[in-house]
Amino acid sequence: MGEGAQVVFHLFGIPVSETIVVTWVIMLALWIFAIFATRNPKTVPKGAQNVAELIIEAIIDLIESMMPNQGKKFLSFICTIALLIGVSNLVGIIPFVNNPTADLNTTMGIALIVLLVSNYYGLEENGFEHIKGFAEPTVLMMPINIIGELAKPVSLSFRLFGNVAGGGIAITIAAMFAPWIIPVPLMAWFDIFVGIIQAFIFTMLSIAYIAVARG
Score class of each variant (00 low, 15 high):
V164S: 08
N145W: 05
T172S: 13
A170I: 13
A170R: 02
F158Q: 01
I144D: 04
S155C: 01
E149Q: 15
L156S: 06
M176L: 15
A165C: 04
I146C: 06
I181R: 11
G148R: 10
F161M: 09
P153D: 08
F177T: 15
A175D: 14
W180S: 15
I171N: 11
S157A: 15
G168S: 04
A178K: 06
V154P: 01
A151N: 14
S157M: 10
I146F: 14
I171K: 13
A175T: 02
G166M: 09
V164N: 07
I173S: 05
I181W: 15
N145I: 09
P153R: 07
F158T: 11
A178I: 09
A175E: 12
G168P: 09
N163V: 13
T172C: 03
A178R: 03
G167T: 05
P179F: 05
T172H: 11
G148S: 08
G167I: 06
F177P: 03
L160R: 03
G166N: 09
A178D: 03
K152N: 12
R159L: 04
E149C: 10
M176N: 10
K152Q: 13
I169M: 12
V154G: 01
I173R: 10
F177E: 13
L156T: 02
E149L: 07
S157L: 09
M176C: 06
W180I: 00
T172K: 10
V164E: 05
I173F: 08
G168K: 01
P153A: 10
P179N: 07
I181V: 14
A151I: 00
F161S: 07
I146L: 14
I144F: 12
I171Q: 11
S155T: 04
F158W: 14
I169E: 11
S155R: 03
A175C: 01
G148T: 06
A175N: 14
S157G: 15
A151E: 12
E149T: 07
K152T: 09
M176D: 09
K152H: 10
W180V: 02
V154S: 02
A174T: 13
F161D: 04
A170M: 10
G162C: 07
S155L: 00
A165F: 11
W180C: 02
A178H: 04
G168C: 06
M176P: 02
G167R: 03
G166F: 09
P153C: 10
A175M: 06
W180Y: 15
I173Y: 07
E149R: 15
